[in-house]
Design a protein around this nucleic acid. Structure first.
Lengths: 109, 109
DNA sequence: TTTTTATAACGCAATATTACGATGAATTTT
DNA sequence: AAAATTCATCGTAATATTGCGTTATAAAAA
């Protein structure tokens, strides 16, 4: 095997996992930090800021885009990446909701 | 390659990524839901609840444990898994902090 | 038009992950 | 003590991810 049995879990669990997975690499966290803090939503500047090759950065951007967390708009020869505000908040909400299902009761061990 | 260049990123980014990575699989989300909702903090019951083999579930539990999100106490022949309340809240806080660095300004595209 | 710049896409190599059956160690149960 | 339970670990197979060099494409600059 090696492939995740997605179909066996709930849509919600898959959604949460998908978002978390996209956040599960330090390079992508670094990229999101740049996009979040930067006044501009850079693009190739990201490559300059990170110690990774252009192709590697491009791939991480692709994954963030596929997870819906960012968007990329073509501007001439450049591409402008931005955090997708709507999806960003939705992701935060979904994760928080997950965390909140645990009402730290001492119902345990 | 194939190995993540962890040393190249900040401790914080690595920490966020580690937590997110642990949450990046639907089976682990399902397990956490069980632990969060369940009155008891089950163990082998998890295997009964999920359509995965015992060894696979055991491995997911191991990863959640390594990420610090849960603890496992041996109780005779059984093992009792629980959400680690402290780490759980810390994880939530770290992720929220990450999300909050983006002040949805329309500084973009 | 040629050249430069900016990105995406392709393909490869190294690792990592997912999943499972089988085995093993500890613990109850009989 | 023998058998059954409970769980971790090992080994293996399939697939995914990470990272990079290289190539392809498109726009801007010369």
């Amino acid at each position: 095997m090696g492939a995740t049995k997605s179909s066996v879990f709930s849509v919600k669990d898959n959604r949460i996992a998908k978002i978390a997975k996209a956040l599960g690499h330090p390079a992508r966290i670094a990229i999101l930090n740049l996009l979040a803090n930067k006044q501009a939503c850079v693009c190739g500047d990201i490559v300059d800021e990170l110690p990774l090759s252009q192709s590697t950065v491009s791939q991480h951007l692709k994954e963030l885009k596929e997870a819906g967390l960012i968007t990329g708009e073509i501007e001439g020869a450049k591409v402008c990446y931005c955090i997708d505000a709507k999806e960003w908040k939705a992701a935060q909400a979904v994760l928080n909701q997950m965390f909140e299902t645990y009402k730290g009761g001492s119902n345990c061990c």
